[in-house]
Nucleic acid binder design. Structure first.
Lengths: 170, 170
DNA sequence: TCAATATTGGACAAGATAGTCTTATTCTAG
DNA sequence: CTAGAATAAGACTATCTTGTCCAATATTGA
């Protein structure tokens, strides 16, 4: 029903939110979410293009959330990689139906609306706070913090990308 | 979001329900629902295999609903051609999650549940009765009744497939 | 400036879905 | 029994999604 890309994007965003505002590198994210690395890179690119994430190249770089978890809904993530297309016109292009949907497509669109509702009403922050004993995705230890550094917080970025430039929708 | 196959299957079933209990031939259904004929044939086959429809070969044959419109929900049709797969186990197979879903997948599954709810609560009969001025799909005139016969009801089938053998779910 | 790190982007392969076509098979009518 | 009508079934093509790989580019730190 939902594409792999959507599933992977959601995992990545939750993973990132969990470490927010620390950046995550593709390899860690892929490992932590059990997604093939090369494919995760592609999914991440899509999220960067949609302004959900911010990417920083070079040493010490990685991707970070571009929106505060409290202001980022699952729907925004879903729409960024695989938009939910509501039905606004008769798919059969019947003149007699005009802009009014027939009973069938009214129901289909209503199902679509309920998905929007379900995803739109949940923020990343809620997901994080709701860990009933189990961390959202996994308890895997990322490469950077175990192998390279032991500090919980990485050294301050020079360019100061530590805060969230966008506080809400784009 | 929903596959073409699902969309086409729903159109076909509504089309058939609208003429129920008269049989419809593939060509008419394809024309009336604006679906490529050969592909409609394949979709119809799937619905027959799922016992939603009954097919009758030979002269005067065609496909008919196998379930009364009042007892047939959109969900049954959707599940017949492209089943909604609810999430019952952690897709990452994390031991720490066990059978309990993490907050993310709880939400995704809940979105899936809302689709089931939306489609499961509507019967074909409701769709038909809800024609607010516009016939569910179209006002196309089928080949059989315009070219071959003018009678509203086709001649009785010898084998007597006029009634609905299954009154509800399979 | 040099080297290491990490994203970017494009080419490429495999698999699933969508759509087409042709040949059987089944049934009715005469 | 035969001819015609209609579905059944399978092979086949095309397109989209998923997944892989590699070279190019950007950034940091020394």
């Amino acid at each position: 029903m939902f594409s792999q890309t959507v599933e992977y994007a959601l995992r990545a965003v939750v993973f990132l939110a969990h470490r927010s505002p620390n950046p995550g590198i593709c390899e860690d994210i892929a490992l932590g979410t059990k997604v093939p690395r090369p494919y995760m890179a592609k999914v991440l690119q899509g999220l960067v293009k949609a302004k959900i994430l911010h990417s920083q190249r070079g040493l010490g770089g990685g991707v970070t959330l571009n929106i505060e978890p409290a202001n980022l809904t699952l729907l925004q993530v879903v729409n960024a990689v695989d938009p939910i297309k509501r039905i606004t016109r008769c798919p059969l292009d019947l003149a007699s139906h005009g802009v009014k949907l027939c009973p069938l497509h009214r129901r289909v669109d209503s199902a679509l609306a309920s998905i929007e509702q379900a995803f739109g009403s949940t923020t990343l922050a809620e997901i994080l706070s709701e860990t009933g004993g189990s961390i959202p995705l996994c308890d895997f230890s990322p490469k950077r913090f175990t192998l390279n550094q032991v500090t919980a917080v990485p050294p301050e970025r020079k360019k100061g990308r530590q805060s969230f430039p966008n506080s809400g929708k784009d």
